[in-house]
Amino acid sequence: MTQYVVLSAILFTIGCVGVLTRRNAIVVFMCVELMLNACNLAFVAFARQHGNLDGQITAFFVMVVAAAEVVIGLAIIMTIFRTRRSASVDDASLLKY
């Protein structure tokens, strides 16, 4: 069972690095999804480890929340793209000043 959790940790780390390095807002978003998926894998693995289904339920709720989050996030990215003609996270820095 440890190998599943290790794989989950590796995927989470890759997602983390992706969020930090990539500039395209959509790709950053995909990396967030990767992190969520990695957590789901850990949940499902632990559900099997402990022999109850609470982990699977949690993974299911994570999926639901991820779906809602993606819808809103992509709508925001599109709105930003409409006003700034760019999907790069560097261009949406108006709140900085």
């Binding site: 500039r23 395209n24 959509i26 993606v70 599109m78 999907a87 790069s88």
Partner: peptide
Amino acid sequence: AILMLFLFVMMLIGVDATDS
């Protein structure tokens, strides 16, 4: 659903957009 949504938005924004 989610990946198709990603692809849809990508088509709206421009497929050729590459990272700087």
